[in-house]
Simulated scan of single mutants.
Amino acid sequence: MTQMPVLETARLLVRPFVLEDLQDVYQLLDVELSQADLRTDKMETLTERAQWLQWAVLNDAQLAQLHQPPYGDRAVVLKSTGQLIGACGFVPCLAPFEQLPGFAPGDRLGGASLYSTEFGLFYAISPAHQRHGYATEAAQALIHYAFRYLRLRRVIATTMDDNVASIGVMRKLGMRIENNPSPEPPWLQVVGVLENL
Results as ranks from 00 to 15, higher is better:
108 R>S: 11
108 R>I: 03
163 N>D: 11
16 P>L: 05
150 L>E: 12
116 S>F: 14
81 T>I: 03
165 A>M: 01
165 A>R: 03
71 Y>Q: 03
165 A>E: 05
174 G>W: 00
137 E>G: 05
32 E>I: 05
117 T>R: 15
114 L>P: 01
52 W>Y: 11
172 K>R: 08
58 L>Q: 14
5 P>G: 10
70 P>L: 11
19 L>W: 01
55 W>H: 06
160 M>I: 12
146 A>T: 14
67 H>A: 12
47 T>F: 08
180 N>G: 03
18 V>H: 03
165 A>G: 09
144 H>G: 06
176 R>I: 05
91 V>Y: 05
57 V>P: 07
102 G>P: 02
104 A>Y: 10
124 A>W: 11
166 S>H: 03
104 A>L: 10
148 R>T: 14
54 Q>F: 10
161 D>A: 15
162 D>V: 05
155 V>W: 06
75 A>V: 09
155 V>R: 06
114 L>Q: 13
91 V>H: 02
30 D>G: 05
142 L>G: 07
185 P>R: 07
113 S>Q: 09
134 Y>N: 08
138 A>N: 06
37 D>K: 09
190 V>P: 00
112 A>M: 06
89 G>V: 10
129 H>V: 04
80 S>Y: 01
172 K>T: 08
15 R>A: 04
163 N>F: 03
151 R>N: 13
114 L>I: 10
163 N>R: 13
110 G>I: 01
33 L>T: 10
37 D>H: 12
149 Y>Q: 13
173 L>A: 07
94 L>G: 01
4 M>N: 03
182 S>R: 09
26 Y>G: 06
115 Y>L: 15
83 Q>T: 13
